[in-house]
Amino acid sequence: MSNDITVALGATGTTGRRVTARLRLRGTPVRAASRSGRTPFDWFHPAGWDQVLRGVTTACVVPPPVPGPVHDVVARAEAAGVRRLVLLSGHGADDWGDSAFGPDMRSAEDAVRGSALERTILRASNFAQDFGGQPFRAPPAAGEPALPAGAVPEPFIDLEDVADGAAAVLSEPGQHAGRVYELTGPCGLTWAEAVEPISRASGLPIVHRRISPAGYTAALVREGWGEDEAQYLTEMFVLLERGTAAWTSDEVATVLGCAPRTFEGFVLRATAAEAWRC
């Protein structure tokens, strides 16, 4: 077991908690840092950053939803003697162009690339688990997920593969230096094609309905989302409809030595956990 400390920034989030658990199981000393955890960390309160980074060798970074703070944290990490950064970002970020979606992730990538530290970037496509949680859970449970998504496929990745990949990279210093891994599922599915096996496995009459981006934003606001937050998620669908991130890669196998989990496997696990029922 290594005595090097890995800090997970955002350790109680959807991805962070999975990565943290895997590192602990491997025997890696982990400092789980988050706003609600035992080690307080807040992207917008720099006064606590130095304490979180003290004695750390490696930092796993899930960027905040705004551009900027990662630059400052990376500078603090360098000053604190951190040697490695592993950043979680979005699939195909180099091809997002002028999209209003993703400035937070692109800013974080710029911060990591601009550092002198050993760095690895993991770019994941949309998670299969999004269908069992926000923002897709309520519409499928109601039977008619209304999304601004059409015929362009999305290579949904199982979140467990993302967490496995992050844990592997974090546990293998030197082996992934300078790499950018595009992590996707084994094949692309349209949202309608993804909903179909959910309907069959669950026995629920679920059918995808396409709506306009403006209609989707308005629906989210009616459900209690803030206007900016709703518009940001809508812009993700606008970007996906361009097709620039519809491609698949084999880099889950490169990192893990095995094929990515299938969407159908996710559906079976989620159905057993009754993820589709309100």
Rank of each mutant, 00 (worst) to 15 (best):
R261I: 03
P197V: 05
W96R: 07
R26M: 14
R123I: 07
Q231T: 12
R22A: 14
E118W: 04
P29R: 04
C187P: 01
F266L: 06
F263K: 01
T15S: 14
V70L: 15
D158T: 09
L117Q: 06
R242Y: 07
R179W: 00
L204A: 12
T234D: 10
P153A: 09
S199P: 05
D250T: 09
V86T: 09
L9W: 00
Q51E: 11
G257R: 10
R22P: 09
L240V: 10
F131H: 09
V255D: 10
D161N: 03
G97A: 12
G165L: 00
L170C: 07
H208L: 08
A142L: 12
R242P: 04
N3Q: 09
R31C: 02
P148K: 02
A59N: 02
V169P: 03
V62I: 15
E223C: 06
R242L: 14
N126F: 03
L23G: 11
L117I: 09
R179Y: 05
V56L: 06
L183K: 08
G55D: 13
A218S: 13
E118R: 08
P213K: 04
F44P: 01
P103I: 01
P260D: 05
R54Y: 00
A138T: 12
G143W: 13
H91M: 02
V267T: 06
G68D: 15
W247S: 06
Y232D: 09
V152Q: 07
H91S: 08
R38A: 15
V61D: 01
F131L: 12
P197M: 07
I198Q: 03
E196G: 05
I5P: 01
F44R: 12
D164K: 05
E227Q: 14
T217V: 14
A166N: 01
G92A: 07
A138M: 11
L204I: 13
P213F: 02
L239D: 00
T12H: 09
L117A: 05
E223F: 06
L87R: 00
A142N: 01
R222I: 03
G68T: 13
L85M: 10
R277T: 09
V70I: 15
W43Y: 14
P139L: 09
W49N: 05
G188W: 04
A253I: 00
A146E: 08
E144S: 14
S212W: 00
Y181K: 08
L122G: 04
T57H: 15
W276D: 00
E78T: 12
D130R: 06
L85T: 07
E251M: 10
E109R: 08
A116E: 14
W225P: 02
C187R: 15
P205M: 07
G226H: 11
V56I: 15
G68R: 14
L240M: 12
R269L: 09
R210E: 13
V52G: 04
R123D: 06
E223P: 00
G97M: 11
I211C: 11
L189T: 03
R17Y: 07
I198C: 02
T39H: 11
F44Q: 12
V86H: 02
T39I: 15
D4Q: 11
T184W: 08
D161Q: 03
D228N: 06
G133H: 05
R54A: 15
R54I: 04
S171W: 04
P140D: 00
T254P: 05
A128P: 02
R269M: 05
A80R: 05
A138W: 04
A149M: 08
